[in-house]
């Protein structure tokens, strides 16, 4: 870090910092892999077998409903009603997905509308949350100022009760702001999701102070430090926040907040289709698959990063 004592934030000094970060993370990574090396002591074969069976049994319980829905969505109507039910289809067909898009004729609103609504809510809600939560997490983790301790404490307490507790007053507040029957009624409260702030703060706690000092010496103000140094470092954390918010928002059905059919999200449509009875079983499976694919897809690609973040999730 010797060169980084220049007085201005030139591109080269930013590059220096990046270099240092990279070095730092490579080193910690190396340490980690060394630590993970399998040490198998105090183990009995008998225990291994029992525990493995137990694991497989629960794995089946966990996967079966999802797997069944996925295969159901690929079955023709005749095969869905085969008695007894089969897990795997003989003839794979995409009719259910086609039907889904043909439901346009039966309802006034095409399924794509619901899809766009869910997408809008999820994207805006997630983006806003990640930005606001990281922006707030940085001073809460790394800087000292009056009120910091109180806020950190409040955030931890807020993890200890669910949204149901605040549902009624939140509804009133949202209606005072005139946000009822708009998607903002779901998007804006999502910005303040405290689990995200908590995880982000915990993750930022481990950023080495020297890195922030270096950036300060380079003449960066706090916002520049945040966007140029901190944010690139906490990428695993924002991916985690994205996944968590996805999980929250992707499944929202608009609840009490959205009345206009045009604005309702996909989950609502799914509920209606499932309620449509046996004849819709195939299409219901198809909608569920669409609902599933996105969050699970996001998780598949980011599992390692999410685990990186969760390693710092501990409550003291």
């Amino acid at each position: 870090m010797a060169q980084s004592t220049k007085k201005s934030l030139t591109p080269s000094s930013v590059a220096d910092i990046r270099q240092a970060e990279l070095q730092y993370f490579k080193e910690t990574q190396k340490k980690k892999t060394k630590r993970y090396k399998k040490v198998r002591l105090s183990r009995s074969l008998w225990g291994d077998v029992i525990l493995l069976l137990f694991l497989l049994a629960f794995g089946a319980f966990s996967a079966y409903p999802l797997l069944f829905t996925i295969t159901n969505s690929l079955k023709g109507l005749d095969e869905i009603f085969v008695f007894p039910p089969r897990l795997f289809p003989r003839n794979i067909t995409f009719d259910n997905f086609v039907d889904l898009f043909n439901l346009i004729g039966n309802t006034q609103i095409p399924i794509s509308r619901y899809f766009v609504n869910t997408l809008t809510i999820t994207l805006f809600g997630t983006a806003g949350h990640v930005l606001f939560a990281s922006l707030a997490a940085y001073p809460l983790a790394k800087r000292r100022f009056p009120g910091r301790h109180l806020i950190n404490q409040l955030v931890v307490y807020s993890l200890m009760f669910s949204a149901a507790v605040t549902a009624i007053p939140s509804y009133m507040i949202i209606s005072w702001f005139g946000l009822i029957d708009t998607q903002a009624a779901i998007i804006i409260p999502a910005f303040g999701f405290t689990l995200g702030l908590f995880l982000m703060r915990q993750f930022m706690n481990v950023i080495p102070d020297e890195l922030l000092e270096a950036s300060k010496i380079d003449g960066a103000n706090e916002y520049q430090t945040f966007f140029l140094v901190v944010m690139p470092l906490v990428k695993p954390a924002w991916l985690t926040l994205i996944i968590l918010l996805f999980q929250q928002l992707w499944g929202t059905d608009g609840g009490n907040y959205i009345f206009t059919e045009n604005l309702k999200p996909l989950s609502y449509a799914l509920r209606q289709i499932v309620a449509g009875g046996v004849a819709r079983t195939g299409t219901a499976a198809a909608v569920t698959v669409i609902m599933l694919v996105v969050p699970i897809g996001v998780f598949i690609f980011n599992q390692t990063k999410m685990l990186d973040t969760m390693a710092h999730s501990g409550l003291k």
Partner: peptide, 19 residues
């Protein structure tokens, strides 16, 4: 991890228990 975590991440997919 993926299999075990999938149910909780999949939003309202618990509706499939209706089936």
């Amino acid at each position: 991890v993926l299999i075990f975590y999938a149910p909780s991440i999949s939003g309202s997919a618990y509706l499939l228990w209706l089936l």
